[in-house]
């Protein structure tokens, strides 16, 4: 921070300093810069090393190679056959994430549009109730939800689980989408209506494109949250064939289907983490928008 101050200070109109002083200052700045890069690099190594270790460990060591060569995919092969099979868990996780992202987007886009452009009875009450979802500890309503799902046959259902995850995403998503629609000029939709679009047609053909960046942000948050969710699937899913990746991996750790296989566990962690890391790196800009929007302050 002191460097910032130095920069702003040097921007002040001052008489040109003597050459020796300039040189001294330049040396000091270079030293400080080296210090920054050295320290920040060390910290970056510290933060990244567990992830790197896990990736490397998943293909090295006796469990991975079976004793031949330096690298091997035996951990992944065992993971593929673990329990119901990796593909089953992967599919479940993909299904839950896709349903949650799609559900969150549909619900939040429609409601965000309503909140930004329409007056309707119960508007404020609904908005406040949705925001209250943030205030309530999620684990406390999972047991009653589990019981209620039992009455309607949604226990042990990926659809039921996704519905709950959509509900958890709703406050953030609704807030983001309402702001996105409010930021649009009214003329956009009016000219669409003039051209004979219905209200829904205007939303679908014109407005949706304009709020796409916010939709990406909402979708990204919904994906990360649903892909990584643990306690909700742990409670709602009782059948091993329905487990999502995190739940399957934790049951691997507790040795539910035999002894604890740390090699296969590493492979599983890598498989679970890679989509999140890749998608985040790709859409980083959109993630930041979620932070800047103040929606997290709900």
């Amino acid at each position: 921070m002191s460097a910032t101050m130095q920069q702003t200070a040097s921007a002040r109109p001052t008489p040109p300093p003597p050459a020796a002083a300039t040189r001294r200052r330049r040396v000091r700045r270079a030293a400080r810069s080296t210090g920054f890069y050295g320290f920040a690099t060390a910290l970056a190594v510290l933060f990244l090393s567990p992830l790197v270790w896990s990736s490397v460990r998943s293909v090295t060591g006796g469990q991975a190679t079976g004793g031949e060569g330096t690298y091997g995919t035996k951990n992944y092969e065992r993971l593929a056959d673990y329990g119901e099979g990796l593909l089953v868990y992967l599919w479940n996780s993909v299904a839950v994430s896709a349903l949650t992202v799609a559900g969150t987007l549909v619900v939040a886009v429609l409601a965000g549009y309503a909140f930004a452009r329409y007056e309707f009875p119960g508007k404020n009450l609904l908005f406040l109730s949705a925001l209250a979802i943030l205030m309530i500890p999620h684990p406390t309503i999972l047991v009653p939800l589990y019981q209620l799902f039992g009455y309607v046959g949604l226990q042990n259902s990926l659809v039921g689980l996704s519905l709950v995850l959509v509900m958890f995403q709703l406050p953030f998503a609704l807030f983001m989408m309402r702001n996105a629609f409010e930021a649009l000029p009214k003329e956009l939709e009016e000219s669409a209506l003039m051209d004979g679009c219905t209200s829904f047609g205007a939303l679908r053909r014109v407005l949706l494109r304009a709020v796409l960046p916010s939709m990406i942000t909402v979708g990204l948050f919904a994906f990360l949250a649903s892909w990584n969710e643990f306690i909700a699937p742990l409670i709602f899913l009782s059948d091993g064939a329905k487990f999502t990746l995190p739940v399957a991996l934790v049951s691997l750790r507790s040795g539910e289907f035999g002894s604890v296989d740390l090699g296969a566990l590493q492979a599983g962690i890598v498989v679970t983490a890679i989509p999140c890391v890749l998608i985040f790196l790709l859409l980083q800009r959109h993630y930041m928008r979620g932070f800047m929007s103040g929606a997290l302050k709900g």
Partner: peptide, 19 residues
């Protein structure tokens, strides 16, 4: 008002039924 309500209905259902 009715149109607005229609758009908000899915969100309202989720808030009421699941929360």
């Amino acid at each position: 008002g009715l149109v607005g309500l229609a758009y908000a209905t899915p969100a309202a259902l989720i808030v009421v039924l699941l929360f």
